[in-house]
């Protein structure tokens, strides 16, 4: 860990990009309780994966953080503020799932990124020179400057994702929520996105990533929150992202392959390999150990 990164992290700790969820329960108007008594806390300079089966409450947690649903019990605090106040302060940026976006909407790439600046403008949303500069900068950073005049539907899956990442950069939210950021993109874009998230982490941002892509979680997430309509486990990836916990979180939903003995080795090595997958990138356990991320987080 180098000194500037530490310094940036310390600086951002001072203003604190944090999420604190305490005893959160959300019951929808049809009486369905999507999340019951969930608690977890996250600090600045963190990438946290939100992992669970469909219907485990991932999107409800996101909705609670965005103020779309009101908690029936418990509370959500963002950087110490209640949700509505935090949103007014532009603390939260949201990168939507690709399937939630209307790609036929008549907007250009640069317009979408400019939307990230709206919260910083006056009520007429007239961009200042600084706003334009931030947009240029964000586009440059995700490598989309050449596409700024394209209508968003004309882009590839990875490019689409990068546009919305650029918007969250332009917004300068300290907390960034990413909803299934790796669905429908190629490995190269995935690596680029992960690289960008690491840079943001170094700058003290807090990222909460909802993902099915179990295989890449240990690569870039420091922490994991495992959900199944409540928090099953939350903590550092190495402690939480274990085979036992995952089997608890996913029950019989995941494909589980266990390879060992002669199927794997030509020698007497008794260790086995376990592959957990829900049809995205598989998660592999060697023996009883999780494959660790390359950067040591």
């Amino acid at each position: 860990m180098n000194a500037p990164v530490e310094a940036a992290r310390a600086a951002s700790t001072a203003y604190g990009a944090s999420i604190a969820i305490r005893n959160l329960s959300v019951t929808y108007s049809n009486g369905f309780t999507a999340v019951r008594d969930a608690s977890f806390a996250l600090d600045p300079g963190t990438i946290c994966a939100l992992v669970g089966v469909n219907g485990s409450g991932k999107s409800t947690i996101f909705k609670a953080i965005m103020g779309f649903v009101k908690p029936s019990a418990g509370e959500v605090r963002l950087c110490g503020f209640p949700v509505d106040e935090a949103l007014k302060k532009n603390i939260v940026a949201y990168v939507p799932q690709s399937e939630d976006v209307d790609w036929n909407f008549p907007v250009l790439v640069e317009t979408v990124v400019m939307m990230g600046r709206y919260g910083h403008m006056n009520f007429l949303r007239m961009p200042s020179r600084a706003d334009r500069y931030k947009v240029d900068e964000a586009l440059e950073r995700v490598g989309m400057s050449a596409y700024r005049d394209r209508q968003i539907g004309e882009l590839s899956g990875g490019q689409k994702k990068r546009v919305f990442l650029a918007r969250s950069l332009a917004q300068e939210g300290r907390i960034i929520l990413l909803d299934e950021p790796f669905t429908g993109i190629d490995v190269k874009t995935e690596a680029a996105i992960i690289g960008l998230l690491r840079e943001l982490r170094a700058a003290g941002h807090l990222m909460l990533v909802s993902t099915h892509n179990l295989g890449s979680v240990p690569d870039f997430c420091d922490r994991v929150v495992l959900l199944n309509r409540t928090v099953l486990a939350a903590g550092p990836t190495a402690e939480v992202f274990t085979q036992d916990n995952l089997e608890r979180a996913f029950g019989g939903v995941l494909r589980n392959f266990k390879l060992g003995g002669r199927a794997l080795h030509d020698d007497d090595d008794a260790r086995h390999v376990t592959v957990l997958t829900d049809d995205e990138r598989p998660l592999v356990f060697y023996g009883d150990r999780t494959r660790q991320g390359s950067d040591g987080h």
Partner: peptide, 15 residues
């Protein structure tokens, strides 16, 4: 426009 294009984002900027 923001609300109709992306309501989540609209909320995130405090609208």
């Amino acid at each position: 426009m923001v609300t109709f294009f992306d309501e989540s984002h609209a909320r995130s900027i405090g609208l």
